[in-house]
Design a protein around this nucleic acid. Structure first.
Length: 730
DNA sequence: AGCACGCCGACT
DNA sequence: GTCGGCGTGCTC
């Protein structure tokens, strides 16, 4: 007698595979198995029991081995992942395995964790029990004489098990350096005094707590301007869940950029273990953090988007910081949105979720305005900090010095004279986006993409920012040998140069992907900025994210036009968010801030709304416009992308897919058309946009499409993908 | 994604 | 004659 199992394998298959196993064997859902697959073998994860009666057109194979005694993923996580695979129309196996650390994907056994569970601390009995276990553990540990095994145990222990750690350090068995997934307390036992909450923060906290204890939960949008003390609210809310012995998940856009946030958490919770999950970890570190969350040893997990798939022993609260940030959206492969999935996961677990930002995404604001989310605002900045003064600079007919107006240069001069810092913001790295020949019109163009190469002066190379093509910049024109090539437009490198020329006495720090690619270099730069009173900062997007520069009083935004004139309908929303965040960087610590926007569009109505009535009114105006055009959040989009060796192939393939979707009310199909970047890395790209008036209709269309795909043989060398709720149409 | 199968070019 | 190039197709 045998039974059947539905197994997910890490392959781009849209279905689960059915295998048999002996009915006498005990198998729990969520365990890994070794299975025969095709000519070889593969690892798989048991997802469900299959109907035994159903006859199959193929010969079922038995699983080869059961690899786990206990499930890697619990029932909730399995259900959540299956939901995600359906929603994003992505291969189930890839979705399931994105929740399993690389280190466990080859079938290696789960490391043995000392099995204890997080014990709820409030009552004395539990405290006692916890202390007793620690004592037992300590006794056992003290018998370990070999430093290497002590080290191993130390690695498996949480930093929260301080007595043990302290004892080990004391005995000289381990050095007091923890793995990078764990936050080290610099001095044991030192408690940082709690900040006193403002009246508004107090009210806000109380309201959140009330909502979180209600029988029906809704996501909470906490809109707090930069410096209004959102983080302090997070900390207080987390306390409640820690006291119950529950864990908290905090999703942040890019953890490498927010070391201060992590520090803040570890200072506030010196007794708790905080684990970090981000792209900078190697497989071992990632496994460690994952195990800590799954076993319950980690009290708080801070991570980037993929941390939404982490297994938890007892998750009680989710917080999304900088909720509007588009880096929560994965832009390749499994194109999920970390925030949206977190909301779904919280809903499935019936636990509260808090979305924090100064500038809510339009869809989030719409949800709040419609009452689907609770909505709270923190308006005041604590202390005496006032909002910055804003200046729109009309640069029409102005002579610019490498993109900088005379007025901007004067404003920078005045800041420096007051021994204050200024920041110049331009969203383009490199020296100039164009290198060309004034004699014959030759232009440095990427051989593999339909895009210009960017000139990088420091390296003296031309680089394609789309495919990475990288060539030496020749002195003379390759077409007509004219010895003098010129550049057009500006990037961060050129702005850095012009500032060095104008202000030779002042250090200039440039922060972009080129200056921060090496590990720790961003931190070093930020350190310089903190330690230097008089300084100029140049950078891209990266500068806008969550750094606190107390002596910064002037911000100049240089490429406002690009955002105002973009054809992408998301561009304005992004600009509003960026502007509000960047403006929030200036004028803290009791010094007046000033923001300059250089533009040829000083009368742009949206710009005026943003400046005069603030982000909220601006965002609501954009929502109104989206409504008129029936764009999201008033419709539901899916972008089908295809790429092939020839544009015609890509277009024809999409046309075929389009025809598989029967015409129906409430569905618009746009395209297929060539993508805005027609060619990338020698491949031509086309896209088809599906816009439906409900998620259900969109889902239906995509089902037609994937069925059609199943029937038609794969076209040679053609790759295609589905992007649900796209945030970028390029 | 793997992995094998298969049908064409240059080698001992 | 065969080694291997990667284009194509399948995975319970």
């Amino acid at each position: 007698m045998e039974a059947r199992l539905l197994i997910a394998v890490p392959r781009p298959l849209r279905t689960l595979l059915t295998y048999t196993y002996p009915a006498t064997a005990q198998i729990t859902l969520g365990c890994r198995v070794a299975v025969p697959l095709g000519h070889g073998r593969s690892i798989g994860l048991v997802i469900a029991l299959a109907e035994n009666a159903a006859s199959t057109p193929y010969q079922l194979k038995p699983i080869k081995a059961l690899l786990d005694q206990e499930p890697l993923l619990d029932a909730h996580l399995l259900e959540f992942l299956q939901w995600a695979a359906r929603y994003y129309h992505h291969a189930i196996g890839e979705v399931i395995f994105s929740a399993i650390p690389n280190a466990l994907r080859a079938g290696r056994p789960l490391p043995q964790v000392l099995t204890w569970q997080a014990i709820p601390t409030p009552d004395a009995a539990a405290q006692l029990k916890r202390a007793k276990r620690q004592a037992e553990l300590y006794q056992w540990l003290s018998q370990q004489t070999e430093p290497s095994s002590a080290q191993a145990i130390h690695t498996q222990l949480g930093a929260s098990w301080r007595p043990i750690l302290a004892a080990l350090v004391d005995k000289g068995l381990v050095a007091e350096n923890l793995s990078p997934t764990r936050i080290q307390r610099s001095s044991l036992g030192k408690l940082t005094p709690k900040l006193v909450l403002s009246e508004q923060q107090q009210a806000c906290l109380l309201q959140c707590e009330t909502w979180m204890q209600a029988s029906t939960l809704q996501p909470i949008l906490l809109q707090g301007v930069t410096g209004s003390g959102k983080t302090e609210i997070y900390l207080r809310l987390i306390e409640t869940y820690l006291a119950r012995g529950q864990q908290t998940l905090i999703l942040v856009p890019e953890i490498g950029l927010t070391p201060q946030l992590v520090q803040r958490f570890s200072d506030h919770f010196p007794e708790q273990q905080i684990s970090c999950l981000h792209s900078g970890l190697n497989d071992t570190e990632r496994l460690q953090a994952w195990m800590d969350a799954r076993s319950g040893q980690a009290d708080i997990v801070i991570g980037t988007r993929s941390a939404v798939f982490t297994a938890f022993a007892d998750l009680g609260l989710i917080i999304i910081d900088e909720e509007h940030d588009t880096s929560f959206k994965q832009q390749e492969g499994f194109r999920y949105h970390g925030r949206d999935l977190a909301i779904k996961r919280a809903q499935m677990l019936n636990i509260p979720i808090l979305l924090g930002t100064a500038t809510p995404a339009l869809e989030t604001l719409q949800n709040a305005d419609q009452g689907r989310y609770h909505y709270l605002r923190l308006e005041q900045r604590p202390g005496k900090a006032r909002p910055p003064s804003l200046e729109v600079q009309d640069i029409r007919g102005q002579h610019l010095h490498s993109g900088l107006s005379k007025l901007s240069l004067q404003a920078i001069q005045r800041s420096l004279e007051r021994n204050e810092q200024a920041m110049l913001f331009i969203n383009r790295r490199g020296f100039a986006p164009m290198l060309l020949c004034p004699a014959c019109g030759w232009l440095a163009h990427c051989p593999a993409c339909s895009a210009n190469m960017t000139y990088h002066a420091r390296k003296n190379r031309i680089i394609c920012h789309h495919c990475g093509a990288d060539e030496r910049a020749e002195a003379a024109c390759p077409a007509c040998q004219n010895p003098q090539l010129i550049t057009q437009g500006q990037g961060t490198e050129r702005i850095e140069l012009v500032l060095q020329q104008y202000f030779p006495e002042t250090p200039v720090v440039r922060i972009d992907r080129d200056t921060t690619s090496r590990k720790g270099s961003l931190e070093r730069h930020l350190e310089t900025v903190r330690n230097t009173e008089r300084l100029l900062l140049v950078g891209t997007q990266m500068l806008a994210k969550g750094h606190d520069f107390p002596n910064l009083t002037l911000v100049v935004i240089l490429d406002v036009d690009a955002a105002l004139l973009s054809s992408e309908y998301h561009a304005l929303e992004r600009f509003g968010q960026l502007f509000t965040q960047v403006a929030g960087r200036s004028g803290r610590s009791n010094k007046a801030g000033h923001v300059i926007l250089q533009t040829t569009q000083p009368q742009h109505p949206k710009l005026l709304t943003l400046l005069h009535t603030g982000y909220l009114a601006f965002a609501r105006q954009l929502i109104e416009e989206r409504k008129q055009w029936q764009f999201p959040p008033f419709s539901y989009q899916a972008l089908i992308r295809a790429e092939a060796a020839e544009m015609d192939q890509a277009l024809q393939y999409l046309e075929q897919l389009r025809l598989s979707i029967p015409a129906q009310a409430g569905v618009f199909l746009m395209g297929p058309v060539p993508a805005p970047l027609e060619k990338r890395a020698e491949r031509y790209r086309a896209q088809l946009l599906i816009q439906a008036e409900s998620r259900q209709l969109r889902h239906l269309c995509l089902n037609y499409l994937t069925n059609q795909e199943k029937n038609s043989p794969n076209q040679k060398s053609l790759r295609w993908s589905i992007d649900i709720d796209p945030v970028e149409l390029s």
